[in-house]
Structure formats: structure tokens, C-alpha cells
Amino acid sequence: MSTGKKLIIFIVALLIIDQVVKIWIKTHMMIGDEFSVFGDWFKIHFIENNGMAFGMELGGGRWGKTVLSVFRLVAVVGIAWYLRHLIKQKAPTGVILSFGLIFCGAVGNIIDSMFYGMIFNDSYSQVATLFPKGGGYSSFLHGKVVDMLYFPLYEGFLPEWVPFWGNKFFVFFRPVFNLADSYITIGVLMLLLFHRKFFATQK
């Protein structure tokens, strides 16, 4: 089996996992619902966001959301083109895998933005329905990204001697994210930690 076909199977499998988890969360939980997976440090906590990875947002309301969604689409096309180039150039497997993860994560969140607003109703004070009779909560490109992975490794008041945050309640790690965000993060870290030499030798 060619490298390209293996990569396609890998990406499709990860996308399916990402979407199955998101759809389950959306159809079984309301915004703010959570349950513990491992003690107090790994929880499933359902939130939605209008923006980028780890809940960051781009200002501008619907306009900002549209710009972000279009940017994501352009970025995905660019990454797909570069992946094809890497495969043709017989780049190291780790490099191809890293960009495959980044591509997969970007597509996973684009699916939310493109379609979730049309195929789900909202999750406020209710569990959302897939393909509701009254239609979705928003339009094409304006869906919200579903996040659920929460790792509050430390929660408590910091000592007074800690600069800026002394004697204040502190949570580490606060961001809530999804599997697609994880794919992107892992892909970038793999490139930075293990494949910098590959880019140093490129013209």
C-alpha cells in the first residue's frame, strides 16, 4: 500500500473518532455539564466556542467567525497541497505523519464550523438534537466548535509570595479542548522536537 493511501486511512480514522466523540457529547450533554474520567484531574466538560484552538476567539462577531472559517479552509487546502508534495518527494515518514495530524485537526474543527450550526439545535438548557425539525441554531460556516477535554491538574489558592497570582484561586490546566486540537498540537510538537533537521536541509 502506498504512503498516500496509508495517510488517507490514518486521517479518516482520526476524523471519525473526533466526530463520533463530538456528536456523542452534543447529543448527550448540555453546555456546562461534566463528569469525571480519572479523579479530579481529567474531566469531560462540555463547552462550545466560536474561535480557534483551546477556546481562543477572533473578534468581530459573525464577521470574525466567517473570516476565521475561510482562513481555516484556505489553510487546509495549503496543508493538503504540501502533504502531496512531501509524499512525492519521499519525505521522512515522521514529517508526513506530523503534517497529517495537523491537517486532520484542522479539518476536524472545520467540520464543526461548517455544518454543526445547520444540523444541531443549541445546547443551552437542553440536550441538542441531530437534524431537529425546526432547523439548526446557525448557518453555514457559523457553527460552534465542540470542546470537552479538561485537565485541571491543580486547583487552589496560590501562596502570597507568587508574583501577580499570589493568594488568588488558580487552575492549571484551564483550557478545554477537543481531539482535533490535540492532533494539531501533537503534529506541531513532533515537527519541532524531532524533524527540525529536515527543514534545515530544504532549499
Rank of each mutant, 00 (worst) to 15 (best):
W81Q: 10
N121T: 10
G143N: 05
V77Q: 00
I119C: 06
M148L: 05
I44V: 15
Q19W: 05
L179E: 11
D40E: 15
G59N: 15
I31Q: 10
P163L: 09
F38T: 05
S138E: 03
L193K: 03
L189R: 07
G105E: 09
G4W: 02
F199W: 09
F131P: 00
G108W: 03
T3Q: 14
F173I: 09
L15E: 11
L193Q: 02
I23M: 07
V146P: 03
P152L: 03
W165M: 07
D181L: 12
G94K: 00
M190Y: 08
I111F: 08
V162S: 00
I79Q: 08
P132V: 12
Y82R: 14
D181A: 08
V21R: 00
N121V: 09
K203S: 14
A128R: 11
G108Q: 02
S182W: 01
T66L: 15
G156R: 00
L97A: 12
F194W: 07
M1S: 09
W63M: 14
H142N: 13
A53K: 04
D18R: 03
A80S: 10
M1N: 13
F177W: 14
V176L: 12
Y124P: 02
G51V: 08
S123W: 06
P159C: 09
G105C: 03
Y150G: 10
S125A: 03
F140D: 00
S69E: 06
V127L: 06
H195A: 04
V162K: 01
I8G: 02
D112S: 12
M118R: 06
L130Q: 07
I17V: 13
A80F: 10
I47S: 13
G51A: 04
Y82K: 15
W24G: 12
I9G: 10
M148F: 15
I16N: 01
Y124K: 14
L73T: 14
C104P: 13
